[in-house]
């Protein structure tokens, strides 16, 4: 139990980078980008291929992320220059990437089990003393995590990306990107090239997605052509759950919420799969239910609160009237 929850948090921290990418397209740019399912695999596949061919894992990961950036830029170009509807542009890019990814990978699965990856590089740098110190917190647990290295390093990486994103969205360029998602007509009248901003924004979004894909592949030890299926839904689920639980007052708050959402999504899925009558094929259904719950619950709570408030006001009014009548 403890071990599987630990694993859930660990992969949640990695998938959070993908969720931040989805946040950038869906929320900031208001662009429903479905490229994600493809660009996630692009990152995983290209990085996997390069590692198998002997490239250093860090360089390979960066190249994978850059390939995702290019894919996103193409989606952006299809939408802005080609005037193709945003959803369709993303879908077209997604299916095109399926073939392109297979070309790069050469076969549907690229195994990295015998290769040096970022993950085992991190582990070899890690001091086991930290592990035993941290594991001593769990005295009495029958099994303890073998290493904290991945969790801690990945959390640091994800947070670093979060802070960079926070900073970027407050720069002059970042403000213009946010305004492009908010009021395109206005920011164009303030001399911003909205087409360029959309292309760059969707590029960055898919760069993050591909980076996440590259890390997930190294974490799992393989890249698979189908590992991206449904990724966009997981990303959206993370964004929506995060916003519902942690709020979205400021940029820094939302990006933190998105990371939280990604981790909670993994934890909930892990817990759900331990329930006896649920099977791993029910995963998609569980995801759908989770997203619906995250969307609907805040609304229900809000209208409850409103109702209560109105009832209280009404009671106060009645009481005042009653007092006036008796006076």
């Amino acid at each position: 139990m403890l071990i599987s929850l630990f694993g859930a948090v660990e992969s949640g921290a990695i998938y959070a980078i993908m969720a931040l990418g989805v946040y950038l397209s869906f929320r900031v740019l208001n662009f429903p980008d479905l490229t994600v399912d493809g660009s996630f695999v692009t990152g995983a596949g290209i990085t996997g291929m390069l590692i198998v061919n002997g490239m250093s894992p860090i360089t390979a990961t960066l190249v994978g992320a850059f390939a995702g950036f290019i894919a996103g830029c193409i989606t952006g170009i299809l939408h802005t220059k080609g005037k193709i509807n945003a959803l369709l542009a993303g879908i077209l890019m997604m299916i095109a990437l399926y073939s392109i990814n297979l070309r790069f990978m050469g076969q549907p699965t690229v195994s990295m089990l015998n290769e040096t990856t970022i993950v085992n590089q991190i582990q070899s740098f890690w001091s086991p003393a930290i592990d035993s110190a941290l594991n001593s917190i769990f005295i009495g647990a029958d099994r303890v995590p073998t290493t904290w290295a991945i969790l801690i390093i990945m959390t640091i990486v994800t947070l670093a990306i979060k802070f960079m994103l926070d900073f970027f969205l407050k720069t002059e360029v970042g403000l213009a990107i946010r305004a492009t998602g908010d009021n395109q007509k206005m920011i164009r009248s303030l001399s911003a090239n909205t087409n360029f901003l959309i292309i760059i924004g969707i590029g960055l979004s898919n760069g993050l997605v591909a980076l996440s894909g590259a890390l997930v592949a190294q974490h799992g030890g393989f890249a698979n052509l189908n590992m991206g299926i449904g990724m966009i839904v997981i990303g959206l689920a993370s964004v929506i759950i995060g916003e519902a639980l942690f709020g979205k007052k400021t940029i820094a708050r939302v990006t933190l919420a998105v990371i939280g959402g990604a981790i909670i999504y993994r934890v909930v899925i892990t817990l759900a799969l331990r329930v006896d009558f649920l099977e791993s094929s029910d995963l998609k259904l569980i995801t759908a239910v989770l997203v619906i719950a995250a969307l609907v619950t805040p609304k229900i709570l809000q209208s409850r609160r409103e109702k209560k408030r109105r009832l209280a006001k009404r009671a106060a009014l009645m009481e005042r009237k009653g007092r006036e009548a008796s006076a």
Partner: peptide, 17 residues
């Protein structure tokens, strides 16, 4: 206001406000 302030300038990667 910061976005309007950048109207006649090149937008850069420095904080807008």
């Amino acid at each position: 206001l910061a976005m309007a302030y950048s109207r006649d300038k090149k937008r850069r990667l420095v904080p807008g406000v």
